Simulated assay, not measured.
Amino acid sequence: MRLTHAIPATLALVFMTMVTAAPAMAHKASDSFLYLDLDRSEIRIDVALRDMELLVRMDRNRDNSITWQELQARRAAITRVVEQGITLSSASGAACSLAGQQWGVSRHSDGRYVAGLYRVNCPAGEAPARLEYNLLFDRDTLHRGLLEIRQDGSTVLTAMAPDKNSIRLTEQTTGLWTTFASFTYEGVVHLLIGLDHMLFLLILVLPATLVTTRSKGDPEASLKQRVIQLAGIVTAFTAAHSLTLALSALGLVRLPIAWVETVIALSIALAALNVAWPILGRKTWKLAFGFGLIHGFGFASVLSDLTSGTPSLAVALAGFNLGVELGQLALLLVGFPLLYMLGHNHLYQRAVVPMILLGVGTVSLIWVAERATQI
Protein backbone atom coordinates (compact mmCIF):
# COMPACT_ATOMS: atom_id res chain seq x y z
CA MET A 1 0.00 0.00 0.00
CA ARG A 2 1.33 3.42 -0.92
CA LEU A 3 2.04 5.91 1.88
CA THR A 4 -0.66 8.31 0.59
CA HIS A 5 -3.21 5.53 1.06
CA ALA A 6 -1.71 4.16 4.28
CA ILE A 7 -2.13 7.40 6.23
CA PRO A 8 -5.90 7.82 5.78
CA ALA A 9 -6.47 4.08 6.19
CA THR A 10 -4.54 4.08 9.46
CA LEU A 11 -6.40 7.19 10.62
CA ALA A 12 -9.74 5.54 9.90
CA LEU A 13 -8.74 2.41 11.83
CA VAL A 14 -7.58 4.41 14.86
CA PHE A 15 -10.68 6.59 14.82
CA MET A 16 -13.14 3.70 14.52
CA THR A 17 -11.34 1.77 17.27
CA MET A 18 -11.52 4.80 19.58
CA VAL A 19 -15.18 5.46 18.91
CA THR A 20 -16.44 1.90 19.09
CA ALA A 21 -14.39 1.11 22.18
CA ALA A 22 -15.43 4.26 24.01
CA PRO A 23 -18.02 3.83 26.74
CA ALA A 24 -21.31 5.67 26.37
CA MET A 25 -20.14 8.46 28.64
CA ALA A 26 -22.57 10.93 30.12
CA HIS A 27 -21.29 14.46 29.72
CA LYS A 28 -21.51 15.14 33.45
CA ALA A 29 -18.11 14.14 34.75
CA SER A 30 -17.49 12.30 38.00
CA ASP A 31 -17.41 15.06 40.61
CA SER A 32 -17.75 15.24 44.37
CA PHE A 33 -18.35 18.48 46.25
CA LEU A 34 -16.47 19.59 49.36
CA TYR A 35 -17.50 22.67 51.32
CA LEU A 36 -14.89 23.66 53.92
CA ASP A 37 -15.75 26.41 56.41
CA LEU A 38 -12.54 27.31 58.25
CA ASP A 39 -14.33 29.81 60.53
CA ARG A 40 -16.65 27.09 61.85
CA SER A 41 -14.10 24.25 61.49
CA GLU A 42 -16.61 22.21 59.47
CA ILE A 43 -16.49 20.32 56.21
CA ARG A 44 -19.35 18.91 54.16
CA ILE A 45 -18.71 16.18 51.60
CA ASP A 46 -21.19 15.22 48.84
CA VAL A 47 -20.45 12.09 46.77
CA ALA A 48 -22.69 10.88 43.94
CA LEU A 49 -24.48 7.64 44.73
CA ARG A 50 -23.31 6.18 41.40
CA ASP A 51 -19.69 6.94 42.42
CA MET A 52 -20.10 5.65 45.95
CA GLU A 53 -21.47 2.41 44.52
CA LEU A 54 -17.98 1.84 43.04
CA LEU A 55 -16.53 1.87 46.55
CA VAL A 56 -19.34 0.43 48.67
CA ARG A 57 -21.89 -2.05 47.32
CA MET A 58 -25.28 -0.60 48.22
CA ASP A 59 -27.63 -1.92 45.52
CA ARG A 60 -28.15 -5.31 47.15
CA ASN A 61 -31.04 -6.41 44.92
CA ARG A 62 -29.27 -5.16 41.74
CA ASP A 63 -32.28 -3.24 40.45
CA ASN A 64 -30.10 -0.20 39.56
CA SER A 65 -31.91 1.87 42.16
CA ILE A 66 -30.60 2.65 45.65
CA THR A 67 -33.30 3.07 48.27
CA TRP A 68 -33.00 4.94 51.56
CA GLN A 69 -33.09 1.59 53.39
CA GLU A 70 -30.17 0.26 51.33
CA LEU A 71 -28.26 3.47 51.96
CA GLN A 72 -28.87 3.32 55.71
CA ALA A 73 -27.78 -0.32 55.84
CA ARG A 74 -24.37 0.65 54.45
CA ARG A 75 -23.96 3.89 56.38
CA ALA A 76 -21.04 2.68 58.47
CA ALA A 77 -19.12 1.46 55.42
CA ILE A 78 -19.83 4.68 53.49
CA THR A 79 -18.69 6.84 56.41
CA ARG A 80 -15.50 4.81 56.76
CA VAL A 81 -14.65 5.17 53.04
CA VAL A 82 -15.26 8.94 53.06
CA GLU A 83 -13.17 9.49 56.17
CA GLN A 84 -10.33 7.43 54.68
CA GLY A 85 -10.44 9.47 51.49
CA ILE A 86 -10.11 12.87 53.16
CA THR A 87 -7.26 13.90 55.47
CA LEU A 88 -6.96 17.24 57.25
CA SER A 89 -3.90 18.24 59.24
CA SER A 90 -2.70 21.23 61.24
CA ALA A 91 0.27 23.49 60.54
CA SER A 92 2.40 21.29 62.78
CA GLY A 93 1.53 18.23 60.71
CA ALA A 94 -0.74 16.66 63.32
CA ALA A 95 -3.75 14.78 61.91
CA CYS A 96 -7.17 16.28 62.56
CA SER A 97 -10.17 14.08 63.30
CA LEU A 98 -13.61 14.26 61.70
CA ALA A 99 -16.64 14.13 63.97
CA GLY A 100 -19.90 13.39 62.18
CA GLN A 101 -22.63 16.04 62.65
CA GLN A 102 -25.25 15.27 59.99
CA TRP A 103 -25.73 12.56 57.38
CA GLY A 104 -28.19 12.14 54.55
CA VAL A 105 -28.88 12.63 50.85
CA SER A 106 -28.47 15.82 48.79
CA ARG A 107 -29.45 16.49 45.20
CA HIS A 108 -27.28 18.02 42.49
CA SER A 109 -27.97 18.58 38.80
CA ASP A 110 -27.14 15.00 37.86
CA GLY A 111 -28.92 13.14 40.65
CA ARG A 112 -28.67 12.09 44.27
CA TYR A 113 -25.54 12.36 46.42
CA VAL A 114 -24.74 10.95 49.83
CA ALA A 115 -23.82 13.92 52.04
CA GLY A 116 -22.06 14.18 55.36
CA LEU A 117 -21.30 17.19 57.56
CA TYR A 118 -18.28 16.87 59.86
CA ARG A 119 -16.67 18.96 62.53
CA VAL A 120 -12.90 19.20 62.12
CA ASN A 121 -11.00 18.73 65.40
CA CYS A 122 -7.27 19.39 65.32
CA PRO A 123 -4.88 18.73 68.27
CA ALA A 124 -4.24 21.59 70.69
CA GLY A 125 -7.06 23.61 69.13
CA GLU A 126 -5.07 24.36 65.99
CA ALA A 127 -6.81 25.23 62.75
CA PRO A 128 -6.62 22.85 59.78
CA ALA A 129 -3.83 23.97 57.45
CA ARG A 130 -3.67 21.19 54.87
CA LEU A 131 -6.21 19.03 53.06
CA GLU A 132 -5.52 15.82 51.15
CA TYR A 133 -8.21 14.20 48.99
CA ASN A 134 -7.90 10.69 47.51
CA LEU A 135 -11.47 9.53 47.10
CA LEU A 136 -12.16 7.61 43.84
CA PHE A 137 -8.88 8.53 42.13
CA ASP A 138 -7.82 4.86 42.03
CA ARG A 139 -11.11 3.98 40.29
CA ASP A 140 -11.49 6.97 37.98
CA THR A 141 -8.53 9.19 37.08
CA LEU A 142 -10.95 11.74 35.59
CA HIS A 143 -12.73 12.20 38.92
CA ARG A 144 -12.54 15.66 40.50
CA GLY A 145 -13.23 16.93 43.99
CA LEU A 146 -14.64 20.44 43.61
CA LEU A 147 -13.69 22.33 46.76
CA GLU A 148 -15.16 25.52 48.19
CA ILE A 149 -13.16 27.16 51.01
CA ARG A 150 -14.75 29.85 53.19
CA GLN A 151 -12.81 32.01 55.64
CA ASP A 152 -13.29 35.53 57.01
CA GLY A 153 -16.11 36.27 54.58
CA SER A 154 -14.12 35.29 51.47
CA THR A 155 -14.67 32.25 49.26
CA VAL A 156 -12.21 30.39 47.06
CA LEU A 157 -13.08 27.58 44.65
CA THR A 158 -10.59 24.99 43.45
CA ALA A 159 -10.49 21.45 42.12
CA MET A 160 -8.75 18.39 43.52
CA ALA A 161 -7.30 15.97 40.96
CA PRO A 162 -4.98 12.94 40.97
CA ASP A 163 -2.00 15.21 40.27
CA LYS A 164 -3.24 17.82 42.73
CA ASN A 165 -4.66 15.89 45.64
CA SER A 166 -3.17 18.01 48.42
CA ILE A 167 -3.35 21.76 49.13
CA ARG A 168 -2.25 24.18 51.82
CA LEU A 169 -5.41 25.89 52.99
CA THR A 170 -3.67 29.11 54.04
CA GLU A 171 -2.40 29.59 50.49
CA GLN A 172 -5.85 29.04 49.01
CA THR A 173 -7.49 31.98 50.75
CA THR A 174 -5.02 34.69 49.75
CA GLY A 175 -6.76 35.76 46.53
CA LEU A 176 -8.79 34.85 43.45
CA TRP A 177 -5.86 33.89 41.22
CA THR A 178 -5.87 30.32 42.54
CA THR A 179 -9.53 29.92 41.59
CA PHE A 180 -8.95 31.33 38.10
CA ALA A 181 -5.87 29.20 37.40
CA SER A 182 -7.42 26.03 38.81
CA PHE A 183 -10.59 26.27 36.75
CA THR A 184 -8.75 27.34 33.61
CA TYR A 185 -6.89 24.04 33.85
CA GLU A 186 -10.15 22.18 34.54
CA GLY A 187 -11.73 23.81 31.49
CA VAL A 188 -8.94 22.50 29.27
CA VAL A 189 -9.23 19.02 30.78
CA HIS A 190 -13.03 19.03 30.54
CA LEU A 191 -12.92 19.83 26.81
CA LEU A 192 -10.22 17.27 26.04
CA ILE A 193 -11.88 14.41 27.94
CA GLY A 194 -15.37 15.25 26.69
CA LEU A 195 -15.66 12.82 23.77
CA ASP A 196 -19.07 14.19 22.80
CA HIS A 197 -17.73 17.75 22.42
CA MET A 198 -14.66 16.52 20.54
CA LEU A 199 -16.79 14.58 18.08
CA PHE A 200 -19.09 17.57 17.59
CA LEU A 201 -16.11 19.80 16.81
CA LEU A 202 -14.77 17.20 14.38
CA ILE A 203 -18.07 17.08 12.49
CA LEU A 204 -18.31 20.88 12.39
CA VAL A 205 -14.78 21.26 11.03
CA LEU A 206 -14.91 18.36 8.59
CA PRO A 207 -16.70 20.17 5.70
CA ALA A 208 -14.08 22.96 5.76
CA THR A 209 -11.33 20.40 5.10
CA LEU A 210 -12.82 18.60 2.08
CA VAL A 211 -11.71 19.57 -1.42
CA THR A 212 -14.54 20.47 -3.78
CA THR A 213 -14.53 20.67 -7.54
CA ARG A 214 -15.03 24.42 -7.38
CA SER A 215 -11.84 25.01 -5.40
CA LYS A 216 -9.42 22.48 -6.90
CA GLY A 217 -7.88 24.94 -9.35
CA ASP A 218 -7.08 27.61 -6.77
CA PRO A 219 -5.38 26.04 -3.73
CA GLU A 220 -4.27 29.37 -2.22
CA ALA A 221 -7.79 30.83 -2.39
CA SER A 222 -9.17 27.52 -1.16
CA LEU A 223 -7.02 27.52 1.97
CA LYS A 224 -7.84 31.14 2.75
CA GLN A 225 -11.52 30.51 2.19
CA ARG A 226 -11.49 27.47 4.44
CA VAL A 227 -9.65 29.25 7.25
CA ILE A 228 -12.28 32.01 7.13
CA GLN A 229 -14.99 29.36 7.19
CA LEU A 230 -13.32 27.67 10.17
CA ALA A 231 -13.05 31.01 12.01
CA GLY A 232 -16.76 31.60 11.53
CA ILE A 233 -17.62 28.14 12.86
CA VAL A 234 -15.39 28.47 15.92
CA THR A 235 -16.61 31.99 16.69
CA ALA A 236 -20.26 30.95 16.47
CA PHE A 237 -19.75 27.87 18.66
CA THR A 238 -17.70 29.83 21.20
CA ALA A 239 -20.22 32.67 21.44
CA ALA A 240 -23.13 30.27 21.86
CA HIS A 241 -21.68 27.97 24.51
CA SER A 242 -20.12 30.90 26.42
CA LEU A 243 -23.56 32.51 26.67
CA THR A 244 -25.39 29.49 28.03
CA LEU A 245 -22.41 28.46 30.19
CA ALA A 246 -22.63 31.82 31.96
CA LEU A 247 -26.43 31.78 32.24
CA SER A 248 -26.44 28.27 33.71
CA ALA A 249 -23.41 28.53 36.02
CA LEU A 250 -24.73 31.80 37.48
CA GLY A 251 -28.10 30.18 38.12
CA LEU A 252 -30.07 32.41 35.72
CA VAL A 253 -31.18 29.49 33.53
CA ARG A 254 -31.15 25.84 34.58
CA LEU A 255 -32.01 22.80 32.48
CA PRO A 256 -32.08 19.15 33.67
CA ILE A 257 -28.66 17.69 32.97
CA ALA A 258 -30.09 14.39 31.66
CA TRP A 259 -32.14 16.31 29.08
CA VAL A 260 -29.11 18.42 28.14
CA GLU A 261 -26.89 15.36 27.66
CA THR A 262 -29.50 13.69 25.47
CA VAL A 263 -29.83 16.74 23.20
CA ILE A 264 -26.02 17.08 23.01
CA ALA A 265 -25.80 13.50 21.75
CA LEU A 266 -28.63 14.15 19.28
CA SER A 267 -26.87 17.30 18.02
CA ILE A 268 -23.81 15.25 17.10
CA ALA A 269 -25.88 12.74 15.15
CA LEU A 270 -27.73 15.50 13.29
CA ALA A 271 -24.49 17.34 12.51
CA ALA A 272 -23.00 14.12 11.08
CA LEU A 273 -26.11 13.53 8.97
CA ASN A 274 -25.99 17.12 7.76
CA VAL A 275 -22.49 16.66 6.31
CA ALA A 276 -23.77 13.92 4.01
CA TRP A 277 -27.25 15.35 3.44
CA PRO A 278 -27.49 19.06 4.35
CA ILE A 279 -31.03 18.89 5.70
CA LEU A 280 -30.19 21.72 8.11
CA GLY A 281 -28.47 23.81 5.45
CA ARG A 282 -24.88 24.39 4.43
CA LYS A 283 -24.32 27.36 6.76
CA THR A 284 -22.15 25.45 9.22
CA TRP A 285 -21.67 28.49 11.47
CA LYS A 286 -25.43 28.64 12.05
CA LEU A 287 -25.40 24.98 13.02
CA ALA A 288 -22.46 25.62 15.34
CA PHE A 289 -24.27 28.48 17.06
CA GLY A 290 -27.59 26.68 17.42
CA PHE A 291 -26.19 23.49 18.88
CA GLY A 292 -23.49 25.42 20.75
CA LEU A 293 -26.21 26.85 22.98
CA ILE A 294 -27.09 23.43 24.35
CA HIS A 295 -23.41 22.39 24.61
CA GLY A 296 -22.91 25.39 26.92
CA PHE A 297 -25.37 23.91 29.40
CA GLY A 298 -23.30 20.72 29.29
CA PHE A 299 -20.10 22.62 30.09
CA ALA A 300 -21.88 24.38 32.95
CA SER A 301 -22.61 21.09 34.71
CA VAL A 302 -19.14 21.32 36.27
CA LEU A 303 -19.80 24.72 37.88
CA SER A 304 -23.54 24.96 38.40
CA ASP A 305 -23.56 22.76 41.51
CA LEU A 306 -21.14 24.98 43.43
CA THR A 307 -22.45 27.67 45.72
CA SER A 308 -23.60 30.63 43.64
CA GLY A 309 -23.63 34.33 44.41
CA THR A 310 -19.95 34.60 45.32
CA PRO A 311 -17.19 36.58 43.58
CA SER A 312 -15.21 33.36 43.30
CA LEU A 313 -17.90 31.74 41.17
CA ALA A 314 -17.60 34.52 38.59
CA VAL A 315 -13.82 34.07 38.57
CA ALA A 316 -14.19 30.29 38.28
CA LEU A 317 -16.61 30.79 35.39
CA ALA A 318 -14.18 33.08 33.55
CA GLY A 319 -11.28 30.69 34.09
CA PHE A 320 -13.27 27.62 33.09
CA ASN A 321 -14.55 29.26 29.92
CA LEU A 322 -11.00 30.33 28.98
CA GLY A 323 -9.82 26.78 29.58
CA VAL A 324 -12.51 25.37 27.30
CA GLU A 325 -11.46 27.79 24.56
CA LEU A 326 -7.77 26.92 25.00
CA GLY A 327 -8.57 23.22 24.75
CA GLN A 328 -10.69 23.84 21.67
CA LEU A 329 -7.93 25.91 20.07
CA ALA A 330 -5.35 23.20 20.77
CA LEU A 331 -7.53 20.61 19.05
CA LEU A 332 -8.04 22.82 16.02
CA LEU A 333 -4.35 23.75 15.69
CA VAL A 334 -3.50 20.05 15.51
CA GLY A 335 -6.59 18.70 13.77
CA PHE A 336 -7.38 21.22 11.05
CA PRO A 337 -4.02 21.12 9.20
CA LEU A 338 -4.04 17.31 9.33
CA LEU A 339 -7.61 17.05 8.04
CA TYR A 340 -6.98 19.69 5.38
CA MET A 341 -3.96 17.77 4.14
CA LEU A 342 -5.95 14.52 4.05
CA GLY A 343 -8.82 16.31 2.31
CA HIS A 344 -6.86 16.14 -0.95
CA ASN A 345 -6.63 12.35 -0.74
CA HIS A 346 -9.19 10.42 -2.82
CA LEU A 347 -9.31 7.45 -0.42
CA TYR A 348 -9.87 9.78 2.51
CA GLN A 349 -12.80 11.55 0.82
CA ARG A 350 -14.46 8.43 -0.57
CA ALA A 351 -13.88 5.95 2.27
CA VAL A 352 -12.54 7.50 5.49
CA VAL A 353 -14.99 10.41 5.73
CA PRO A 354 -18.07 8.16 5.27
CA MET A 355 -16.65 5.82 7.92
CA ILE A 356 -16.17 8.77 10.29
CA LEU A 357 -19.71 10.03 9.71
CA LEU A 358 -21.17 6.55 10.15
CA GLY A 359 -19.15 5.87 13.29
CA VAL A 360 -19.94 9.22 14.91
CA GLY A 361 -23.62 8.98 13.99
CA THR A 362 -23.95 5.44 15.35
CA VAL A 363 -22.23 6.19 18.66
CA SER A 364 -24.25 9.40 19.07
CA LEU A 365 -27.55 7.57 18.58
CA ILE A 366 -26.46 4.98 21.16
CA TRP A 367 -25.79 7.85 23.56
CA VAL A 368 -29.23 9.31 22.78
CA ALA A 369 -30.91 6.00 23.62
CA GLU A 370 -28.96 5.50 26.85
CA ARG A 371 -29.24 9.09 28.08
CA ALA A 372 -32.95 9.31 27.24
CA THR A 373 -33.67 6.60 29.80
CA GLN A 374 -32.39 8.96 32.52
CA ILE A 375 -34.79 11.78 31.69
Rank of each mutant, 00 (worst) to 15 (best):
Y185K: 15
R226P: 02
I228F: 10
S222I: 00
V324D: 06
C96N: 07
A265K: 08
A129H: 01
L3I: 14
C96S: 07
G251W: 07
F183S: 01
G319N: 06
L55D: 14
L332E: 04
E171I: 00
D63M: 09
Q69V: 05
R139T: 00
P128S: 06
L88E: 09
S222A: 15
R50A: 10
V47A: 14
I356C: 04
A12C: 09
D196H: 10
N274V: 06
R75C: 00
W68A: 13
D152K: 10
D110G: 01
V227N: 13
V82H: 02
T10S: 12
I264T: 03
P219Y: 02
G145V: 06
D163Q: 09
C96W: 00
A181V: 11
A29F: 03
K216W: 08
A258R: 14
S312H: 02
P337L: 12
F200K: 06
G290L: 07
A221T: 05
W259L: 15
L245Y: 04
R80M: 09
E126R: 12
A29E: 11
S215N: 14
V156Y: 00
F299A: 05
N134P: 07
M18W: 15
L243Y: 05
A221W: 05
L287M: 07
I45Q: 13
E370C: 01
Q349P: 11
L131K: 05
A246I: 15
A161E: 11
T213I: 08
M25G: 08
N165R: 12
M58Y: 12
R119L: 07
A77G: 01
L71W: 03
A239P: 04
P128F: 03
L210S: 04
L199S: 02
F291E: 00
E148T: 14
S109P: 11
A258T: 10
T17S: 04
W177G: 12
I356D: 01
H27V: 14
D196M: 13
A73Q: 12
L317C: 03
A265I: 04
P337R: 07
P354V: 11
G309R: 03
L280G: 09
I268C: 08
A272C: 11
L313M: 06
G116D: 02
G296F: 00
R107Y: 03
A94Y: 00
G217Q: 11
V227A: 15
V14K: 02
E186R: 13
R2F: 07
G309E: 09
A159T: 08
L169T: 09
V363I: 08
L365R: 00
G290K: 05
H143T: 03
L252N: 08
T87V: 09
D31E: 10
Y113Q: 10
A24V: 11
E83M: 14
L34R: 09
S154T: 12
A26K: 13
F297D: 00
V14T: 11
I203T: 15
S166M: 10
L358Q: 05
A272N: 09
A24W: 00
L280H: 06
L332S: 05
R139K: 08
I366A: 13
L313S: 10
G111S: 13
W68R: 14
A249E: 02
W103C: 01
N321F: 06
W103K: 09
R214Y: 12
F297N: 04
A91R: 11
T20G: 02
M1H: 01
L199A: 06
L280C: 10
R119D: 13
A231H: 04
L3W: 08
E132H: 10
